[in-house]
Design a protein around this nucleic acid. Sequence first.
RNA 1: UGGGGUAUAGCCAAGCGGUAAGGCACUAGACUUUGACUCUAGCAUUCCACUGGUUCGAAUCCAGUUACCCCAG
Length: 366
Amino acid sequence: MSKVIVGLSGGVDSAVAAYLLKKQGYEVVGAFMRNWDSFANNDILGNNFDTPICPQEMDYNDAKRVAEILNIPLLRIDFIEEYWRDVFSYFIEEYKKGRTPNPDVLCNKYIKFDAFLNFCKEQGADYIATGHYVKKIGNKLYKAFDKNKDQSYFLCLLNQKQIDASLFPLGDIDKPTVRKIAHELNLNVADKKDSTGICFIGERDFRKFLQNYIPAKEGDIVDIETNEVIGRHIGVMYYTLGQRKGLGIGGLKNHKTGSWFVVDKDIEKRILYVAQGDEAKYLYHDTVIVKEVNFLGEEKPTTWTEINAKFRYRQQDNRVKYRFIDDTTIEVKCIDKVKAITPGQMMVGYLDDGMMLLGGVIDKIY
RNA sequence: UGGGGUAUAGCCAAGCGGUAAGGCACUAGACUUUGACUCUAGCAUUCCACUGGUUCGAAUCCAGUUACCCCAG
């Protein structure tokens, strides 16, 4: 009997994943991970300390109860140092450069499917499993059956070895079914709200959260159309491309009505460039350079090739063509211009049948 | 201190005697395992610069006061 260790987060998805694996005949062990310590990590601003018990301990209690109901052992392990070293420091460095990183993709690459995987191997596991909505067919990953919840995007930097060692029991069922199963099992977490925010950290007032690690450096907000200063900001690194909220720009004399959106930033000059209206041409781009590409296909193409691409989680697929310009860098041309493609975020490419072909970091946009 | 103009919520701005549009911002919620976007709701319970007056009734008319703007000094 194969042994699989399931990362139990204390949510419904991983609970049902564990159940399904057990039903399939695996020897299942649960493991609860804790990778963030608010106090040790100076996570003060933007945090909500009102709750009597910290959310992580509540999740642990939930996971413990799930393990009891499913009658499986539950391990607990911390990767707080690893998370800081491999995920969070990169996250902060990227923000300091004015980019917008995706910590959860790295968390999967370095923590869940590396540090955790190694731990599980030491525990004698043949596989690890998670509650990700993603389908594994053969040794490839595909978009999940539940297109609304598909989380393959977050796994775009896993290498073949990591994929080979992993099971994804939720690839063929949708979220409503997961909740239904949870109800049938009388799981305590059957109706628990989906978690959001950075994985292991949670919901935060994001700008305040960043202020714990990146000092504020205020500067001008400039209308990119007229080069006119129309406001002040407290730090360009706190804003991302396409962002509307938090600019504080009200109605202006001699201007049309409509919201303002961040369209560019100048870190050196501390200038935040904005444009009025989300149809603004400054927000749309069609040429992208993606670096550190993780290619999961059999053979890299030598010419321009069409695929479907997402430039952010839950974005509709965009038809693009790409070509390698060196071993780990691709140039991407979008058939139709795409709104607010953001350096630091991931581009993930899929084949028409849903197979995840590649993922990489958006480096430059034109 | 001659003439003209404007003063409506944080900002822009309708309203022209009948009991305060709309937009932006902001706040809350929804959505969401990144950051965003998006959606929904709330946002002057009548000091509409201030003080009087006319009127059944005024932000809307009249007078005065104050502030700012423009043109002439």
